[in-house]
């Protein structure tokens, strides 16, 4: 089981989010491992609005496709074009180079601490 960074917050749908503003968003190593090799990312455009708890993108592997739920409400200020061009970054470095979005935060949805997320995935 991959280590879960303690400085991040999490959703029950396996996204992580930083506490700063703009907040950086990605998917957890547990999620990336379960998906398998990510081959395609569909992410919102810079300037678009995302809503906490709502779908903001899709992540596709050879075996399955999953929706990405935004942990926060706000405006997308940056999209990780490196990861769009090379989605394998999501598998190799999900908490680093495999980040997905930066969002100027208006409000946050219900989030889990690292320990609560660990309990969720190990439970």
């Amino acid at each position: 089981m991959s280590a879960i960074p303690t400085e991040l917050q999490y959703t029950a749908e396996h996204e992580w989010v930083t506490t700063g503003d703009p907040a950086t968003i990605g998917i957890t190593a547990n999620a990336a491992e379960a998906l398998g090799d990510v081959v395609y990312l569909e992410l919102p455009e810079v300037g678009s609005q995302v809503t906490a708890g709502s779908v903001c993108g899709e992540i596709e592997s050879t075996k399955s496709v999953s929706e990405i739920y935004s942990p926060v409400t706000g405006t997308v200020v940056e999209v990780n074009e490196d990861a769009v061009g090379d989605p394998s970054l999501v598998n190799s470095d999900p908490y680093g180079q495999g980040w997905l979005l930066r969002v100027e935060v208006v409000a946050t949805g219900p989030l889990l601490s690292a320990q609560e997320y660990a309990e969720l995935v190990e439970g």
Binding site: H14, A34, V65, S66, E67, Y69
Partner: peptide
């Protein structure tokens, strides 16, 4: 992030619905 269920009918190839854990 949650898996999208692509079809209502049962199928043999549902190998990696999200939630499959190592």
């Amino acid at each position: 992030m949650t898996a999208t269920d692509p079809g209502a009918e049962p199928r043999a190839a549902r190998l990696n619905e999200f939630g499959t854990q190592p």
